[in-house]
């Protein structure tokens, strides 16, 4: 346990270091902006005097190291300032958008993981069968297909041609509002079908391929022979094998959720889903830099946090892992 504690502390320090590096890179990036925020935000009717006062108010006339320290402190405290265009603190906007993104990702991930695990386990168990071969081929195909084009295709077919499903958005205009009303509303789930399907079609391939290969490894283990010798029915033996094959999936899930943001931005644009990715694109188009900066930071944080949890979980779940 001593080793584990030392490992956790080391990982935590690394996490803080990486976050600090990313913040510094971002600070540098936003310093490179042509002009300063006042030139974007302030009306040309402002007198030079008023601009100067505004700059003082925002601390833009302070030396750069002071701006840097203030920046790091604000970011650490999730104080992202005011949006240039929306009348709300950026942290509130972020909380709302992260919630919306989660409303798309979480259901899709749960389905992908549960279904993917079952399909992958069966495929691995029946090595060499038609089922296994077609599963692997389909998964590899889906895994490498550009998901945003898949998104465009299903949108064209199911929304525009067949008119079965709404062409985008999270709820209809004047639809349910607030978290709890929404997730019990049929309207939300109907809107989720298409983007959810595209997301599942890509994300399910990971657990399938992973479970299949780790099942192949577990399949040769001695403990399965002992179970067989005990006279357990095949069904139960599969269950035992699957539980052991599940281990690598734990780390994979976190990595997968972290990487999700890549494709998430695209899906949110295609399906007009008001999540954090779409917010970032809009903020960049509007030159609303406080929002853009916060969105990038939040996405990086989520990625890092999930990776961190995965690293720790792996040791907790598999007692064979040591930290020396």
């Amino acid at each position: 346990m001593q080793g584990f504690r030392r490992y956790v502390i080391r990982r935590l320090m690394l996490l803080v270091f990486v976050i600090w590096c990313i913040l510094t890179i971002m600070f540098g990036l936003f310093q490179l902006l042509p002009g300063d925020p006042t030139s974007i935000f302030i009306d040309s009717n402002f007198s030079p005097d008023m601009i100067e006062r505004q700059k003082d108010l925002w601390g833009l006339n302070d030396p750069i190291w002071l701006q840097y320290l203030r920046y790091i402190r604000n970011m650490a405290l999730f104080d992202f300032g005011q949006s240039f265009f929306q009348i709300a603190p950026v942290s509130e906007i972020m909380a709302d958008k992260v919630k919306n993104t989660a409303l798309m990702i979480v259901p899709a991930l749960v389905i992908s993981i549960v279904l993917g695990t079952i399909i992958g386990a069966i495929a691995g168990w029946r090595r060499g069968s038609k089922f296994e071969q077609s599963t692997v081929a389909t998964s590899l195909f889906l895994h490498s297909a550009p998901s945003f084009f898949v998104g465009i295709l299903v949108l064209m077919v199911f929304s525009y041609q067949l008119r079965w499903l709404p062409p985008g958005g999270m709820v209809s205009l004047g639809g349910p509002d607030g978290f709890w009303e929404m997730i019990v509303a049929r309207d939300y789930w109907v809107h989720l079908i298409l983007p959810g399907l595209v997301l599942v079609s890509r994300e399910i391939t990971g657990p399938i391929l992973l479970l299949r290969s780790s099942m192949l490894e577990v399949k040769g283990s001695d403990f399965l022979d002992i179970l067989r010798a005990k006279g357990l029915p095949e069904r139960q033996i599969v269950t035992h094998a699957t539980r052991n094959a599940l281990l690598p999936l734990v780390t994979y899930i976190a990595v997968m959720t972290g990487l999700l943001f890549q494709g998430q931005v695209l899906l949110e644009i295609i399906f007009a889903w008001p999540g954090i990715g779409r917010e970032l694109v809009q903020a960049l188009n509007d030159l609303d830099y406080p929002v853009a900066q916060a969105a990038l930071y939040v996405m990086a944080l989520v990625t890092l946090a999930l990776n961190f949890i995965a690293d720790l979980l792996y040791g907790v779940i598999d007692p064979r892992v040591t930290y020396e």
Partner: peptide, 11 residues
């Protein structure tokens, strides 16, 4: 590895 590519590249 900590930087989400697409968002970062967009910025």
């Amino acid at each position: 590895f900590g930087i989400p590519f697409l968002p970062f590249a967009m910025v």
